[in-house]
Each structure stands twice: as C-alpha cells, then as structure tokens.
Computed example of a mutant assay.
Amino acid sequence: MTNGLDTSLKIDMASMPVQLPATTAEPVAARARFFNSGNAFNVKLPAVPASTFREEAALALAATTTTLFACDQSVVIAAPFAATTPLMLAQYAAIAPGDTLPAAFAASGVIWYVIRGSGSTKTGTELFDWAAGDVFLTPGGPNTSLAAGPDGAVLWLVSNEPQLAFEHLVPPDAATAAIEAVHYPAAEIARQLQRVVEAGQNETTSGIALIFSSMRQEASRNIMPSLTLSLNTVPAGEHQRLHRHNSAAITLILQGESAYSMVGGLRCDWSPFATLVTPATEPHSHHNEGDERAMFLIVQDGGLHYHARTMGFSFLEATGNGS
C-alpha cells in the first residue's frame, strides 16, 4: 500500500512498453514516443571489448590487390555501421604497386600512418608524397585519393566515420571544414620525439609521448576536433603506470619485442602492427620488458571529452617503477 492505494495491480515503470500519443490527427504529433525513468534511464548497451586485431594486419601486409581491412566490432557492440569503438573505425589499407585507393570516407577527417611503402596523396588541390613511418591527416569526403609507388604500400588509418554515421551526417565541404591536410614526415616525428624524451617529467606526467596537432587545431592541442593522436613510448625495462580515462583508445603497435598492455586485468601481448582496443574507463598500463624503447600510436575520441570536460583521467598507481 502507498498513501492508502493498492499498488499490486500497477505496472512497474521499467516494464512499460513505449507509449504512443492518444490522438494522431497530425503527422508531426503521431511521430511522438514516450518512455520513463524506469525503462529509458541509464540505457545499457553491449560493452566494448578489449580486443586485439592481428589477422587484419597480416592480411594487409600479404595483400596483392588494393583492399581495405576493417577492425570491425559492430556486431559485438550492436552498432548498425562498421565501428571499432562506438565513435571510431580503424582500418588497414593495402594499395597495389602503381594503383590508387579512393579515400571517400564519410568522416570529418582521417588519420593515416604509413606502415610500408611509399606513394602520394591528392586531396582537393593539394598533392604530397609520403613514405614509411610518416603520419598524415586528410579531410573526409570524396576529394581524397592515395596512389602507391612501384612497391605498393600498406597504411593504417583511423576515422570518425561511426561518429558521423550515428547522427546520419555528411562531411563538411572544404570551404567550411575544420580539418585540412597535414603531413608529419618520419624524420620530423623522430626529431620532435627526441626533444620530448630529453625533457624532464613530474608526477603528473602521464607518459613519454609526442602529441600531434595542426595549425587549425593548435588551440585545442588535438589533431581533429573529436580525435587525438599521440606517439607513446615506454623505455626499456619500464612501464607506463596504471591509469584510466573516459575516452576509448585504438592503438597501433610500432615497436616492442617484449612488451604488452594490461587492460582491465587482461594481458594483451604486442605484435608488430597489431591494433589494440582499450575500452573507455578500463584501467590499463603498458609494460616493456625488452631492451629497446617501445613505441605505439594511440588514437582516442579525446577531443570530444576535452570539449565536454569529461576526460576523467586519473592514475591508479603511485609513482615509482614507471614512466
């Protein structure tokens, strides 16, 4: 009994089906739907797993034709579009010698890393060459293509296609886009990373990493409005201490013979050019038991969380045996 009323015949709010309007005279009113705090508050969706994509990398490196190999978890996370995490999609691109890959992605931007080979990118009216170890950024939309050199090429790419697909959006045109092409040659990356390695750290430093940005995104310190890119490193025999953040992370392994990550208590062993997925909020750390510096590229949907003030970064381990 509640306030003298018999509640035994009342339906629980959580069991109520979707409610429709009582009258549907107007088409715009007929489209209304109603839920409540029992059946629509704190909606539970399938969890994003901590995954390792190795087969896709192997297929790309062995491919003889121009093909994309997606690190797709859409079935597992119940997404109606290809996605590695709810807002990001990682892929490998194999481009046959002398062939061209159209890069008409429905994304606001695409981050590329050249695993092997060389070639050139044409985006809008701009054309630039690239080689192994380079990173570059291209705007989304239909005006970008990649041409491989005589030995072909294999690249890793991450876009925010799922972010746009979620809201059925299309990339902005070049005149209004927040993203323009940016090229980060391998030699310049190495020079900038060395400056970071030689710099000092304090107890708030999350690791030894080079952060990529651009002229248009300099104020936000991101590579794209929604995505961040970093080249993380762990010195030989050390580890990056346990931490967490609300952004999901997609990692490409570049170097680390005896290295691994711990994600939510699960050990994820590294292998060359494998893609690792760290789900949002999962505690994780990176360990290097080898004799050389471990190196890995990490793309996060961090730009969105920085903008929303929800990054929630925190250490879960005291300073000491870590970097």
Rank of each mutant, 00 (worst) to 15 (best):
V114R: 01
L231F: 11
Q240P: 03
F128I: 05
A50W: 10
A174N: 09
L146D: 04
E317A: 14
L87A: 09
G117L: 01
P102G: 05
E317H: 04
H284L: 01
A29R: 11
A60V: 08
P102I: 08
S261E: 07
Y92R: 03
G141R: 06
A209T: 01
P283V: 09
D129Q: 12
P49C: 09
T205W: 02
N288H: 15
S120G: 13
R309L: 05
E56F: 08
I115W: 02
P102A: 01
F212S: 02
S258P: 06
R195K: 15
A209F: 02
L9C: 11
M13W: 04
P17W: 07
S258A: 15
A294M: 12
L297K: 03
P172A: 14
L59R: 15
L304A: 08
G237Y: 15
A50V: 05
D291I: 09
A175T: 15
A107L: 08
G109I: 04
L229K: 05
M215S: 14
L61A: 06
Y306M: 01
G264V: 08
H307M: 11
S285D: 12
R191N: 05
S159V: 07
N42W: 08
S51M: 08
A79G: 06
A187N: 13
L45S: 10
A57S: 15
T278S: 00
M295A: 07
L45K: 12
M262I: 15
A177E: 11
W112V: 01
L229N: 01
P279N: 12
P279L: 12
A103G: 02
V197R: 13
L87H: 06
A58K: 11
L45T: 15
G117M: 14
P185F: 01
A103S: 10
S258V: 09
P142S: 11
R33E: 10
H286L: 03
E167G: 15
V197D: 12
E218G: 03
S120T: 11
T7V: 09
V76S: 14
T24M: 13
A90R: 03
Q300P: 04
M295R: 14
Q201E: 09
V197A: 10
P185A: 07
T24C: 12
T121S: 10
Q217R: 11
F296M: 05
A249L: 02
G141L: 06
N3G: 00
Q240E: 06
A25F: 14
A14F: 00
P272S: 10
F128V: 00
